[in-house]
């Protein structure tokens, strides 16, 4: 896909805050019509990337295009075509939620009153309450309704469901899937992996200011391990010696192990030679994908905690 056809294209983006290198060469490509998941733990650089894409921060180096324009120089023109939901919505204490929604939506330009009312209803949001009286989840809903009711091509959502209850999260997912069906493009930053797995066509994983993985869920899965549980006629004792097999464990005549995608064929061949009685194989969950990149952080944190 050429650079101009992409709705968001970012290459080698660098942003430093004093000595801290928040973005260290980020590359990101979002194609029209896709829901793109942007994954990473707190502090990895998700929000900083998004704030550069919105022209709120100026990048120190690299290249960023949003909707074909420069996010810093052409901010206003581009913002007519996109809507943004921050992860922590701060409202004016003395304006009602309804007023805030309308302020955001009207300032953006095109705005569908009927859809706004319908969304208020769906998200069970009382628009007559003052900003200061809303809970975190309700403030989040104000921003979501304002964004979804806007007639825009691109939604930039930065952990939009932080603080929403599971029911609202489901309603949010439905609304995003409807928008996707209408051809809207979405950049969804999140660390709710199930949500990303359900909604996103393509995924980019960011770590320490760098994209460490990018592609469709299938592509990413292909790069990583499959979990296999098998029951064989003869005990599968020497699996650990096979290339690409990890953590085999034998229990109750079942063997469970993970295997790298490129060694799946030979490993199953080996099991076959032992006489397969039953075989369950499932692709890696997003959580496993994610943990593969953050595994060392996790084990460090755990050993730190136990010390």
């Amino acid at each position: 896909m050429t650079d101009t056809a992409l709705l968001i294209s970012v290459s080698d983006l660098v942003k430093t805050f004093g000595p801290m290198r928040a973005l260290d060469g980020v590359n990101l490509a979002v194609a029209p019509g896709e829901v793109h998941g942007f994954l990473g733990p707190n502090g990895a650089g998700k929000s900083t990337t998004i704030r550069v894409l919105l022209g709120l921060l100026r990048a120190d180096a690299g290249h960023a295009r949003v909707l074909g324009g420069d996010p810093w120089d052409e901010a206003v023109r581009l913002h007519r075509r996109l809507a943004y939901v921050p992860g922590d919505v701060s409202l004016w204490p003395n304006l009602t939620g309804g007023e805030a929604i309308d302020v955001f939506a009207r300032l953006r330009g095109g705005f569908d009153q009927r859809r706004r009312d319908e969304l208020c209803e769906r998200f069970d949001l009382d628009p007559t309450k003052k900003g200061r009286t809303y809970s975190k989840g309700n403030r989040q809903k104000v921003a979501i309704v304002g964004a979804l009711a806007s007639e825009v091509e691109l939604l930039v959502l930065d952990e939009p469901t932080a603080g929403l209850d599971p029911l609202m999260e489901t309603i949010f997912s439905d609304a995003i899937l409807e928008d996707k069906a209408r051809g809207r493009t979405v950049l969804l930053s999140s660390h709710i992996l199930a949500q990303v797995e359900k909604l996103c066509d393509r995924i980019s994983i960011i770590r320490l200011g760098k994209i460490v993985e990018s592609g469709t869920l299938d592509e990413l899965r292909h790069l990583t391990r499959t979990t296999v549980t098998a029951r064989t006629a003869r005990p599968a004792t020497n699996l650990a010696q096979l290339p690409g097999v990890h953590d085999p464990s034998l229990e109750d005549g079942h063997v469970t192990f993970e295997v790298d995608a490129e060694h799946l064929d030979t490993t199953i061949g080996h099991l076959h030679s032992l006489g397969i009685r039953s075989l369950i194989s499932h692709p890696p969950t997003l959580e496993q994908l994610f943990m593969r990149h953050y595994g060392e952080d996790l084990s460090e944190a755990r050993s730190g905690a136990s010390r």
Partner: peptide
């Protein structure tokens, strides 16, 4: 933190 969503509009 009320400016960012405002400036993310037109």
């Amino acid at each position: 933190g009320r400016v960012e969503p405002l400036l993310a509009t037109a």
